[in-house]
């Protein structure tokens, strides 16, 4: 039996619904880095509950969600945001989808385009040691971990959609 982690502060809204092979769960959290790890662990647990085939994908799901929340909260440091970050976790066999929305400032075009590109462009490591980058890995890790990712700006919200195919043949 695994335990569900407690958040730093209680999510202000959460809904749960299970319908046979589907699941839909909403989580809302503050713009607080201290909440990221527990949300990552919670999404991992939801993945386990969704599919018995999820095990090989768990780290990738958690990694993608954590990296995205890191980015959203880092953006909010420039212009503080009212409200909450909302996550909608949905499983329709075999797809586990996490839709994340926030009311922060619109992300710049370069970053937005990077979320839209299919190719994964990790920073090069074939360079001198002193030039190895200590940042800039996050978006590429998200793209590596997801089967699909999309970003759009709608009605004052940044909306990200991360999809993971949990079918055994793909993991």
């Amino acid at each position: 039996m695994t335990s569900i982690p407690a958040l730093v502060s209680r999510p202000r809204s959460s809904t749960f619904s299970f319908h046979g092979a589907t699941m839909n769960i909403k989580i809302a959290i503050n713009y607080d880095s201290r909440e990221i790890s527990n949300v990552g662990k919670l999404v991992r647990h939801l993945c386990v509950l969704s599919s018995e085939d999820a095990e090989p994908s768990l780290n990738q799901v958690e990694l993608a969600v954590v990296e995205l929340l890191n980015n959203i909260i880092n953006y909010s440091k420039d212009v503080p945001v009212d409200g909450l970050i909302e996550l909608n976790c949905r499983f329709v066999d075999p797809d586990f989808t996490v839709t994340v929305s926030d009311r922060g400032q619109e992300i710049d075009n370069v970053v937005a385009n990077e979320y839209s590109k299919d190719d994964i462009r990790m920073p090069s490591v074939d360079i001198s040691i002193v030039d190895l980058p200590e940042s800039g890995w996050g978006i590429q890790l998200i793209k590596s971990a997801c089967d699909e990712i999309s970003y759009r700006r709608s009605k004052g919200k940044n909306i990200y959609r991360l999809s993971f195919d949990l079918s055994p043949a793909t993991v």
Partner: peptide
């Protein structure tokens, strides 16, 4: 058991600093 890009960045920073 888990490392994100911030952790990776820290490890790379260590690697560079101890050369």
């Amino acid at each position: 058991e888990f490392m994100d890009s911030s952790g990776l960045g820290a490890v790379i920073g260590c690697y560079k600093a101890v050369q």
